[in-house]
Simulated scan of single mutants.
Amino acid sequence: MDGAPEVDTLRSLKRISDPTRARILRLLLEAPDGRGSVTRLAERLELRQPTVSHHLKLLREEGLVVRAQDGRTAWYSITPAEVDRVAELVHEDQPSDDAAALDRIVTDLATRYRGILAPESIDQYVRDSFDRLDGRKNRASLTSAFAVSRLDAVLRARGERSAEPEVLFVCVQNAGRSQLASAILRQLAGDRVIVRTAGSEPADTVRSTIVTVLDEVGTPLGGEFPKPLTDEAVRAADYVITMGCGDACPIYPGREYLDWDIPDPVGQPITAVRAIRDDIEGRVRDLLEHIVRERLVNATTTD
């Protein structure tokens, strides 16, 4: 029946919305052996055993928990087929410790860029990246990836990174056209070209139709996600390709700017999105040939 998964999820959320049941599930998920008895759970929760038994009964009725008898003790664990869904639901129900996550990211990146970038600069970029990704799911991990991209762009703009040409694709939401172009160029160019994307008004996620039409031609999107347009991304680029974002992109000398007039795939049927993909692929192939020719000319001139 259409909509059944959503109904199941909402019902599960209702079950987990009770703080005691959420804590029971969290304890079961975090238990070293993946299980817990009424006695053990009651002690951890500082509740009476009948109360814990009542909540476990409701969770069993929902199919989120299974019961196994071992001698005189009944053990409860997360239903194997529901572990991922329960982990996601419980995670969403549990407040995240943003401060601790950011401190960990800063510490890890300070190790990564030791001797290259000052810890104070890393801290600034991490916290600014976190602020720019407000409201995103998996915000901490996205912050880490976004900060790394920005820090690498800073180094490249200083001339402290590899000499491969860099292309920046920019559209409004960084969820459609720019993602199509970047995925196709990465597939065609491999390590010969550094590819980045950004959006003047980025969405939360890449559109599902974009993932679908890329998958149809065997082109992976990878771990890409919509990112805000930043000054350092433009400074690091050799080629800046804009698609419908108007004057949002700053202009710096020494970069080649192209504006591709391509329809926005938002709200378009899948057949139209395929046509947009094919149009972009042709432009990307031409762009890659142009980049290769320019590099050959520059190399010959240098020699």
Rank of each mutant, 00 (worst) to 15 (best):
G3C: 10
P5V: 05
P5G: 10
L10I: 12
R11L: 15
R15W: 13
P19N: 04
T20L: 14
T20R: 05
T20E: 03
R23W: 02
R26I: 06
R26C: 05
P32G: 03
G34K: 11
A42F: 11
L45K: 02
E46A: 11
L47F: 09
R48K: 12
P50R: 07
V52E: 00
H54V: 04
L56D: 01
K57S: 10
K57R: 12
D70I: 08
D70Y: 12
T73H: 06
T73K: 11
W75V: 07
Y76R: 00
I78K: 00
E82G: 00
Q94C: 10
Q94F: 08
P95W: 05
S96N: 10
S96H: 13
D98L: 11
A100R: 15
A101V: 14
I105R: 03
T107F: 07
T107P: 00
A110E: 08
T111G: 15
R112N: 06
G115Y: 08
P119C: 05
E120T: 15
E120F: 11
I122Q: 00
D123T: 14
Y125Q: 03
R127H: 14
F130I: 04
F130N: 00
R132F: 05
R132Q: 11
G135Q: 09
G135M: 11
N138R: 15
S141W: 04
R150W: 10
V154C: 04
V154F: 12
A163H: 15
V167E: 00
V170Q: 00
A175H: 02
S178D: 04
A183C: 07
I184C: 01
R186Q: 12
R186Y: 09
L188V: 07
R192N: 05
V193S: 01
I194V: 14
G199W: 06
E201G: 09
P202K: 04
A203Y: 07
D204W: 13
R207N: 11
V213L: 05
V217D: 07
G222R: 12
G222F: 13
G223K: 09
P226D: 03
P226W: 08
P226F: 09
P226Y: 12
L229D: 01
D231S: 13
E232D: 14
A233P: 00
R235E: 12
A236R: 00
Y239T: 05
I241H: 02
I241K: 01
T242K: 03
M243L: 07
C245L: 06
Y252L: 03
Y252E: 06
E256R: 14
L258Q: 07
V266F: 14
G267Y: 12
I270T: 13
R274S: 02
R274E: 09
I276H: 04
I276Y: 08
I276T: 06
R277Y: 12
I280C: 04
E281M: 06
E281Y: 10
R283Q: 10
V284E: 01
D286H: 13
L288T: 09
V292C: 02
L296P: 03
V297D: 04
V297H: 09
N298V: 04
D303A: 11
